[in-house]
Simulated scan of single mutants.
Amino acid sequence: MNRKDLAEAVRQELPKTRWEHTLRVVDTALELADRFGADREKVDLAALLHDFCKFWPEKRMEKVIRDRDLPRDLLEHNVELWHAFVGAEAVRDRFGIEDGEILDAIRYHTSGRPHMSLLDKIILLADYIEPGRKFPGVEEVRQLAREDLDKAVLKSLDNTLVFLIHRGQKVYPLTLAARNDMVDRVRQPRSKEESL
Rank of each mutant, 00 (worst) to 15 (best):
E13K: 14
R142Y: 09
E31H: 09
R185P: 02
K63A: 11
L164S: 03
T160A: 05
E62D: 02
W19M: 07
T175W: 01
A47E: 03
D148H: 13
R179D: 04
V186C: 14
E139M: 14
K192H: 07
L161K: 00
L49T: 06
G168N: 07
A126N: 14
E20C: 09
E31A: 07
D93K: 10
M182G: 14
G100T: 12
F95E: 01
S156Y: 04
A38D: 11
K151M: 15
R60E: 07
L23V: 07
L124D: 03
V79S: 09
E41R: 14
D148V: 11
W82T: 11
R60Y: 11
V64M: 03
P131C: 08
E101G: 11
L75T: 06
L176A: 03
H109D: 02
A46L: 03
A29R: 11
E193R: 15
D104I: 12
K4R: 12
R107G: 01
A88G: 13
K155N: 04
V162N: 03
L103I: 06
F95P: 10
V43N: 09
M1K: 05
V153E: 09
D93E: 15
R24I: 06
E98R: 10
T110P: 06
E89Q: 06
V153H: 10
V91D: 05
L45M: 05
P131A: 11
A152P: 08
Q169L: 06
W19V: 03
E41D: 07
D73T: 00
R24S: 15
E193A: 15
R179H: 03
D51R: 14
V138P: 13
V91L: 05
L48P: 02
R107A: 10
G112T: 01
R167V: 04
H50A: 05
I106A: 03
V86R: 03
D69R: 13
V153D: 08
I123N: 01
A105W: 03
P15Y: 07
R35A: 09
A105I: 06
M61T: 07
D181S: 09
I129C: 14
L174Y: 00
Q143W: 11
F95Q: 05
R142G: 00
W82N: 01
D44G: 13
D27I: 04
K63V: 01
D69K: 15
P136S: 10
F85N: 05
K121M: 15
H109Q: 09
Y108I: 02
R107L: 00
K63D: 05
D93Q: 12
E20R: 08
R179I: 10
S111T: 11
D73V: 04
L161F: 00
W56T: 04
S111R: 01
E147Y: 12
L32G: 01
L144N: 12
E140H: 15
A105R: 10
A46M: 04
L23Q: 14
A33E: 12
W56D: 05
I106V: 03
T22L: 01
L149E: 07
L14Q: 11
Q169P: 04
R68E: 06
D69I: 08
E130M: 14
K121F: 15
L119A: 12
R113Y: 07
V86Q: 00
A7W: 11
R185N: 07
H115E: 09
S117F: 14
R35I: 13
V141H: 12
I106K: 01
L118G: 15
T110M: 09
